[in-house]
Design a protein around this nucleic acid. Sequence first.
DNA 1: GCTGATGAAGG
DNA 2: TCCCTTCATCAGCG
Length: 759
Amino acid sequence: MGDNMADTLSKIKLETPITSKYLKYHITSFDEIKKWFDIDKPLLTVIDSETTGLHIKKDKPFMWVFGWRIPECIAIKGRVFSFNHDTELLHKVLELSKSTTLIGHNIKYDLHMAINGGVNEQFIYSFSHITDTMGLCRLSFNSVSVRDGGDSLALKEVTKKYIDKNADLFEKSVKQELRNINDIKRKILLKQLKELGWSVGKLKDAYKIKSRNGIEVFTFERNQRWIEVPEEVQKVYSNWIKNYPLATYAEVSDDVIKEYIHSDVIYTLEVFERQYPIVKARQQFKILKQENRLLIDLLKMERVGLKVDMNYLKDSFNKCESEINKLYKELWELIGQKITVAQSKVIADYYKTLGVETETTDKKFLNNQNNRVAQIITRLRRLEKWQSTYISRIIEVAEYDGRFYTTYNQFNTISGRLGSDSQQFPKERILTEQGEKYELEHGLGKALDKHIIFSPRQAFTVDDNDYNRIVYFDLSQIELRVQANYTILLDKPDKNLCRAYMPYQCRHYLTGEDYIYTDEFNRNRWNEKDSEGNSVWVTEDNKRWTPTDVHSETAHNCLLALDYRCKEKYKLYTHYRDASVDEKSFKKFWRYIGKMFNFMRNYGGGSAKAAEALEIEMYIADALVEGWSKTFPEVANYQNKVTYLMNRQGYVTNMLGRSYYLTNKDRSYKVANYLVQGSCSDRFKDYIIEINDFFLLNNCKSRIVMNIHDEIQISLYKEEEWIIPEIKKIMEVVKWSKVPIVVDVEVTDTTWANKKEYN
DNA sequence: GCTGATGAAGG
DNA sequence: TCCCTTCATCAGCG
């Protein structure tokens, strides 16, 4: 070690046997990094940022750590450098990293922060040397969800389990520091409240305190609404929030932060060292490469965001608020005490006084109570959820610049899906009670403006500049098509499922030629029509092919299993003992449970769960199982084959090459669905890459703004309508699928709620 | 303060 | 043997 550099070495209070193998520096000039870089000649570098918060546009980095593994050196494993944020310095470091593989744990977030910190966007978008250790973890961990006791991807969890059991000490010390700072701020509030005869505890009861990244955020949203808050208290509270916002990591002392982030990059290097060989052994490089490329496309997408209508949101918030207040008033009057509807124990105690003993106060229980109190509680739970999770959440994010930004969890999902908070925005609007009554009388969708409390998708609007349309590309029933394709791959095509999407085993009504699905040209003739608009393909009973209604078919076979006699398919069934089933009840009840069960069964569900979830008698649930097996015998075969393969070789691989590993075979039955869900997801990830390549090649200004599992939303630049059929074409090509893939296109020039079919 | 249960959503 | 998720809140435990 050069003597002239000794002064930059940091003395760290906290060390573990793992972290002590790395040399740590706090530096102010690039030369100090460059010098060691030239000596060590690293192949693997790592980066991490400390920031003012989690908003991907608003928040800024205040400190960085950059480090590397020294190749083949065991005594000193690596070097890590922290430095206060400086755009120039950061840029040079990132430039330097280009000759190496640059890793980070959730590195997409750090790239956002680099851009927010002033680094040129295009420079970042050009990166092709990055890898996310979260991605490495996903591709090397077993396919077990956290819910089932599987590994979490959080750096702290991974490290604690596999690298260093003391890994959480560092974060604990930062959290403690944070608490100390916030305690001082809270004491100021406490003092002011005391003078008014109030307390912080009482304030916490009155208002919602939300948690953001472990930091408490005080809000003005009401919690226990019966608590009256005097105006002076409101004023004190409001001023305190304004003048003493709770501390972020930016306020924690540099010394503590430095120790903390040094440890983070050290652990990231260690995670890489442990997981990378497993990814290699599992032959997951193709998927890894795809994920690395996608990371940049997601980064771009996230930064666009969606424009929101803030006035509409604030209006909706107030409407929601008054409906909630109205209902609470009625509820408290009815039960004679002040409660919140989330207090399940209190509600259970209330029902005890009525002579109803219950363990839960869940939705099903309340539905069965059939009284006004239960009705109000159910409705209030829904309204409060909507107000807090959707309305105020969107406002919170969009307050910065009028746009809603979502971040995608690229690696969290076992199957390979992208996760994001936008996936839970409700599709349908929420109405007032009067509105619901009105629709019962006048028909669905007929509610008047005054009845609508909030229509989530109406809050998302097109831009009012040159991007004045949003186009929605939606893959039609993609998972069932892929499920059908898997039965074809096993050489046992499921007739009913295949016929839902193509005229399988049909022939041409004029030429007599067979419908062929094995090559792309012939496969695409699935939708050919004669001059009268009927399909040109006929089935073995000389009837024109119409897509199988798979849900009706399951219901039909379920009825047969229950000894019904079919008088007219899907329309009339008679029974020697029970009442007959007419068209109306077939559609409303039997097809409905058929549909529910079709999905359930594809996920491995059985009759007991069906009886519970669908609230039907056990013998009907058993009939559903029988009906399903009769309808889709080859899907059942597929499920058995996957389970067999999983048990035999310990892993299975989806259509794009992603492998799912299990050591505990008890959950092998789940893997059949992973293959279907995962193949769709990985193809979907390809779409995003392909579409962005298409944009680049054609100098398009249009851009992807959002995706939800099987839907891509594109903000269309004014003169680029021509790209719509091109993108549809890109998406309808799925090389490995023998089942035609269909994309539905919709478009809006106002809000998401108003999208219309595009021709 | 943390964890698990519950329940509101999406596919 | 009901799949993959996100987010918010309460109850029970230490």
